[in-house]
């Protein structure tokens, strides 16, 4: 093969190479085209159209009417429910994401213990995150039932009068956060993989140097786990801002709007009261908020995420 190529003149060879490259590029576009089409029709187009709609008043019956920045103005200055839904969502994110992170890491460390039967326990802790959706929401409604639910009847055994959970303004959000922690197994598995990627000899070397378990955790385990934590943090933030199903099915935003999350309020505006322009403005505010959050995490990540080989910088 190589000998045959040497005999061909350089000009001819580069021409042949160009032809091959062109054919490969054409093939590339052909294979890529399904996604490109989907991107234009189902992502890019809708994103731009949504931006346009956010400057209009649109009830889907008549055509959109341009009203400038009116939607944004009303949302930010006059709509108390908007701020309430934003507060509820931030409350949910601020508690569920860090708690999920801490419990996920701790469970992963537990799952990383080399004891017989550990595979069984990994399954046990992971199982709740296999199930999701309405069925889980119903299960938790029943668990959290103020009078007959398992949680309050168990508390009663210890002489503790449990709160009304989903029916109590102060406890409704914590209830949903608690429920989200039941599904921590998914991130636990990711942390576990991260832990298993840490070279064992690091621990052995530090033990020779006389480091105890606590010191090993802060100096080896946690730094080397930061890339995984970073990934889970971003995913947790994105998911947290979009929390919807729990409040829609379990509380319908109540009591007194205490679980009216951003995505639920947006849904109500768009599909219950047909204020598509207003809801689009909300969607764009959400987009900007998640972008800001992601950027903050990305920016600060240089300070706290450890990348292998970058330690001397």
């Amino acid at each position: 093969m190589e000998q045959a190529e040497i005999k061909v003149s350089p000009a001819k060879r580069s021409e042949r190479r160009n032809r091959l490259a062109r054919r490969e590029a054409l093939n590339g576009y052909a294979f890529f085209s399904p996604w490109l089409f989907g991107f234009l029709v189902f992502t890019a187009g809708p994103v731009l159209y949504s931006l346009y709609l956010s400057f209009t008043s649109y009830d889907t019956l008549s055509s959109p009417k341009w009203i400038g920045i009116m939607n944004y103005k009303v949302l930010l200055t006059q709509d108390a429910t908007f701020w309430k839904s934003l507060y509820n969502t931030l409350y949910y994110v601020v508690f569920s994401v860090p708690l999920g992170l801490i419990i996920g890491v701790l469970l992963a460390m537990l799952m990383n213990q080399k004891v017989p039967g550990i595979r069984f326990f990994r399954t046990v802790f992971y199982l709740p995150s296999v199930v999701s959706g309405v069925a889980v929401a119903l299960l938790w409604m029943w668990l959290l039932d103020p009078s007959f639910g398992l949680i309050n009847t168990t508390l009663a055994k210890f002489g503790i009068q449990g709160p009304g959970w989903l029916t109590d303004v102060d406890w409704s959000k914590p209830s949903l956060i608690l429920m989200s922690l039941w599904g921590v197994g998914g991130s636990m598995i990711i942390y576990l993989a991260g832990l298993q990627g840490i070279p064992r000899d690091l621990y052995e070397a530090s033990r020779v140097d006389g480091a105890g378990a606590v010191r090993q955790f802060w100096r080896i385990t946690l730094p080397l786990l930061t890339p995984t934590i970073f990934y889970n943090l971003i995913m947790g933030l994105l998911g947290g801002f979009q929390v919807f199903l729990q409040s829609f099915v379990m509380t319908n935003g109540g009591p007194v709007d205490s679980t009216l999350f951003y995505a639920l309020y947006l849904y109500n505006k768009a599909f219950k009261s047909s204020q598509m322009g207003y809801a689009s403005a909300m969607a764009w505010i959400l987009l900007v908020l998640t972008l800001i959050c992601t950027l903050i995490v990305l920016r600060t990540s240089k300070k706290w995420v450890y990348y292998e080989g970058a330690e001397n910088k």
């Binding site: 054409l26 890529f32 991107f39 187009g45 159209y49 801002f241 768009a270 969607a283 764009w284």
Partner: peptide, 29 residues
Amino acid sequence: LRWPGRGAWFVVMLATMMLPGQVTMIPMF
């Protein structure tokens, strides 16, 4: 396959994962 724009499109594709579904929901409807 090597084709012009591959790297850029790859980044665009990864970026779409960050997009909240609420933004495209209404226009798609």
